[in-house]
Write a protein that binds this DNA or RNA. Structure first.
Length: 428
RNA sequence: GGAGAAAUACCCAAGCCUGGUUGAAGGGACUGGUCUUGAAAACCAGCAGGUCGGAGACGGCGCGGGGGUUCGAAUCCCUCUUUCUCCGCCA
């Protein structure tokens, strides 16, 4: 969603931007919105005039009542009745137009940053930078499910029976490792000055539509039956939603928070749930970071945020790279986005463990998050980034810290969260 | 889950019964001024912030949100949300 003024003032720019993302059929939409907007403003202008007239006459009745001029009151009421009829008609028109415009506007993608590479889909994403040597050991790295199994750390069969495909039991040291990584990620961000927060894990539909596009909503969100509640797909949803319809004081910006939550995703999209392991699942846990800041600081924070994730993974001896999202792969609300990918010595390629996004004012516009300074109020910029999503992060950790005998090295950074252990050894 | 009470501008708070120059009294905070060497205090003055339309003059909306009654709603009615108190239940 963008500012409708942009369509009023610079239709071509909006079309240009859409071209970068799709080839395609949303272009006529811009002209449609433009026309609807003209009609809407005309209707509003006329209705406003009539409303002013009506207000004035109503006030007159007030004084007439005091002076007890009954005849004039009756007359005046009649004229008011007539304007009311007209107003009613115009209001219906206003409402229909407004609704139509809003619906169409919701699907207009955000203006992407000029630095975003142009491409059709995720195949055309661009590697930005590597951090750490993508190391392949002399022995073969087993599938992460096997690594876990060797430590008696996973039970997918039972989970299949209790909950179905896409769920899992993590057990013993593996479960502890999972929590340890989350705790470490939390403290890592606290040390960077972020405020820790545990948000609600369910949110109302109004918040959902504020933070994501409709397609995403259908593909991701679990709905609670009989209630206007959705299980969050990421704590970003409740964290950004926290600020809806707020005017944040200038001096309170930037708001930097790190939040923990379980995340629930239907994963209806193209990939589906894979059969083995816990790479793509319906339920995982995540340490997230969000920043709400002034538009001018957005790009600075964007860089700092993905860098934090890189630093986090490097502190766990996991090689990573950043992959820039191309225009076609960029979600509609995003201005720019990159994935942080961890090295898999088993697959000998990188895989996604996190995603850093700057949304410009798209979420702020939908949710009404503003700030005020001497130039008036304006929408803030919102950003979000994964610190650690796990079990996916756990997979990266296990593959990169595995020894030939099946034991797992615990780096010094994580050791305190594992009761001081420096290595996990499989029983016999 | 049950029973009550409440939500008014940056904050506190009147108004609601008895609808009409109240788009909102009074404080506090804030801004400017007088006084002071400076500050405090005192006094004087300003002060809805928002949002939409308009080039502007202006105008519309706006007393938690949404409806309704009425010529007219902060005020009456319905509904939703949130907060507080009490009871129940639970980690």
């Amino acid at each position: 969603m963008i500012d409708i003024k942009l369509i009023r003032e610079n239709k071509e720019l909006v079309k240009e931007n859409i071209k970068k993302k799709f080839q395609d059929p949303k272009l006529p939409l811009v002209d449609q919105i433009f026309e609807l907007d003209l009609k809407y403003r005309e209707a509003k202008k006329e209705a406003d005039q009539l409303r002013a007239e009506k207000n004035e006459n109503s006030a007159k009745i007030g004084t007439l009542v005091r002076d007890k001029k009954t005849e004039e009151i009756v007359k005046l009421k009649e004229t008011i009745q007539q304007t009311s009829e007209k107003i009613k008609q115009l209001e219906t028109l206003e409402e229909t137009l407004e609704k139509e415009i809003k619906e169409k506007m919701m699907t207009i993608p955000n203006i992407i940053d000029s630095s975003v590479p142009i491409g059709k889909d995720d195949n055309e994403n661009v590697e930005n930078e590597k951090f750490g040597e993508p190391f392949v050991p002399t022995f073969e790295i087993p599938h992460h499910a096997d690594i876990m199994a060797k430590l008696s750390g996973i039970d997918k069969e039972s989970a299949g029976r209790t909950s179905g495909n896409g769920f899992y039991y993590l057990i013993g040291d593996i479960a502890r490792l999972h929590s340890a990584m989350i705790s470490y990620a939390r403290d890592f961000m606290i040390d960077k000055g972020f405020t820790y927060c545990i948000p609600p894990f369910m949110i109302r539909s109004e918040v959902v539509t504020g933070v994501m596009s409709f397609e995403e909503m259908d593909e991701m969100m679990y709905k609670i039956e009989g209630e206007d509640l959705y299980l969050i797909g990421t704590s970003e949803h409740s964290m950004i939603g926290k600020f809806q319809n707020q005017i944040v004081k200038k001096e309170e910006l930037p708001i930097c928070m790190t939040s923990y939550s379980p995340c629930f995703r239907k994963e209806v999209g193209s990939h589906g749930i894979e059969e083995r392991g816990v790479y793509r699942v319906h339920q995982f846990e995540k340490q997230e970071m969000i920043v709400i800041c002034d538009a001018s600081d957005g790009m600075g924070w964007y860089k700092k945020m993905w860098e934090s994730t890189v630093e986090f993974f490097r502190s766990l001896d996991i090689p990573v790279r950043t992959l820039e999202c191309c225009s076609g792969d960029l979600a509609n609300l995003k201005v720019k986005s990159c994935d942080v990918e961890a090295w898999s010595p088993r697959q000998k390629k990188y895989f996604e463990v996190g995603s850093c996004s700057i949304l410009g004012d798209a979420q702020a516009r939908r949710l009404g998050i503003r700030t005020k300074d001497q130039n008036g109020t304006h929408y803030v910029t919102t950003l979000n980034n994964t610190v650690l999503a796990t079990p996916r992060g756990l997979i990266a950790f296990l593959e990169n810290n595995l020894n030939e005998d099946g034991s797992i090295n615990i780096p010094a950074s994580l050791s305190p969260y594992m009761g001081g252990k420096t290595v996990l050894t499989p029983k016999k």
